[in-house]
Nucleic acid binder design. Sequence first.
DNA 1: TTGTAAGCGTTATCAC
DNA 2: GTGATAACGCTTACAA
Lengths: 339, 339
Amino acid sequence: MKPITLKDIAHELNISVTTVSKALKGYSDVSRVTKKAVKKMAKKLNYTPNSVAVNLRTQETKTIGVIIPAIVHHFFSNVIDGIIKEAKKQGYLVITLQSNEKLEFEKKQLKLLQQHRVDGILISLSNETYQFDHINAILQKNIPLVMFDKIGKLVNCSKILIDDKQAAYEAVSYLIDKGYKKIAHFRGALKPQNSIDRFLGYKKALQDNGIEYDQSLVYICDNNDDFNNGYKYAKKMFEQHKNVDAVFTVTDVVAYGILKYCNENNIKIPDDIAIFGFSNWFMSSIVTPKISSVIQPSFEMGKKATKLLIKEIKNKKSKTPVTFKKVVLPTSLAIREST
Amino acid sequence: MKPITLKDIAHELNISVTTVSKALKGYSDVSRVTKKAVKKMAKKLNYTPNSVAVNLRTQETKTIGVIIPAIVHHFFSNVIDGIIKEAKKQGYLVITLQSNEKLEFEKKQLKLLQQHRVDGILISLSNETYQFDHINAILQKNIPLVMFDKIGKLVNCSKILIDDKQAAYEAVSYLIDKGYKKIAHFRGALKPQNSIDRFLGYKKALQDNGIEYDQSLVYICDNNDDFNNGYKYAKKMFEQHKNVDAVFTVTDVVAYGILKYCNENNIKIPDDIAIFGFSNWFMSSIVTPKISSVIQPSFEMGKKATKLLIKEIKNKKSKTPVTFKKVVLPTSLAIREST
DNA sequence: TTGTAAGCGTTATCAC
DNA sequence: GTGATAACGCTTACAA
């Protein structure tokens, strides 16, 4: 019932464990005959190498750890998909952990990954994380770590992200070019960098186009119920402002809330009001009307982050000096019926 | 730069590794003074236990492996969420792997998990899996394995699932009770058990209510583009049948396709046609009109499956004889505007 | 071409 | 209360 070991094979063939090990790995200093016999026996006994022992010996686990705020999320599940696929391609396994947007959990998970001696870590910070001792501790121990999407600007490590400000700028500029003049913004919470940057992009686009920034046109969706926030603030907005002709939202789900309100109140999209979302959720091309949105390369981000991380792992192994990279992935606009 | 080990602590304090190990684990046969000193030093040196070494020694990795068809999927990402949360609660880490609906991948991933000596495995089968040698091989090696959702009826292990047939039966019965008489079914591919069972539930509900089963009212959505399948077959259905008054779909995404077609062609829901979906995707309560759907307990399923698995792991360790369980999780109906 | 022996970092047994 | 020693399963100098 116990798993077969090299020792079992060696014993069976009356040779040494060393030879069995070498034979199985195709070393050139083992005779053809022996190799063949070993492989045959391994197959016969249904031998499965014990990675744990290998890991201890070789000091690497061929495993990477990932910490994200939540896996039930359009963007993150796509990132994870990219991570798992790239990792698999390069022979790594992926341990996924969630911070649930809590700094405290993030710290614990980081410790766990360390204990398990993952070869490297990918992390997207929680919304609570504005202090980076726990991250820096990892970095100081020379454990490869790459941040993606929600990064800490002050941390000295490789990062991969999009330019939220620029992406928002492009979306809002598009609206302006289309002739929309009074553009509201349903932004995210006040602290997260993504939320701030998208807001700044919105503001800058207005200013660069000679449209005065009006604070009363900015609504803050700061609890986690984006859909209902969209609905609620749409109502409020239409009560407060008669002539808003477009809305740019921090994420598509907020836009769905607005959409619902408009449908219920016979407000025509895009004739009465245009809607531009962010993150290009699956549903945005399915709802009626289809919602324009900023395309955020989620799968790509996972893939690239993993590539970067594994490169750093290999560099560390070969003692190549580290150079941290900051990769900004391009975004684009999906223009649909709502604008 | 190398991680601190027990040896380092022992050396620092001039005591033995054994004592350090015991002290750190709070064994009663170490003096208070020594314990205190050891813990202090461990903290000072920022000691992190090496799980790999522990794993090798204790023959358990405190890790479970999960194989699912795809992670970018409403149902599965919720299951994974449940798995990760429950595993974490019990001190286990989760390695996630995807089969991409390919039997070949499923086999490979299973082998990988074995090599890494995970303590147990959770699996939801690929649509291609109708032969179970790879699963049985794991079971024969006495590695705890629990199947969920897409299970193999013939495999002798614990399973956790919903009663697809019964759930479909209830949904269609609801439609019939509401007065709908000509009910179409947009089913899934021919081979997957879920798809078959939902179809059978549909058929049985008709028969039990004295409605004749009409094969021409069943449309098969057998490629992976559910949304467009829904749209395409909606068109076809309205061309072929004048008086269909309801549709039951194998999954909500198909229903969204129908919804789109109806919206475009001014077909009123539920007045002209009622729509009942399956799986209760997030969007079903957001689209207009809101779509009725079968609630499948995804998060719960992940949690329960993990609990079951860890129990089996513990039973194995304590040599308690195994008894396989089959857990059928209750479903319910979310009745909304579309019916 | 094959084998011996050391060691990866722990824990468990047993002696002191 | 403490520590020497073996062992978990494997890899790798080095020796034969």
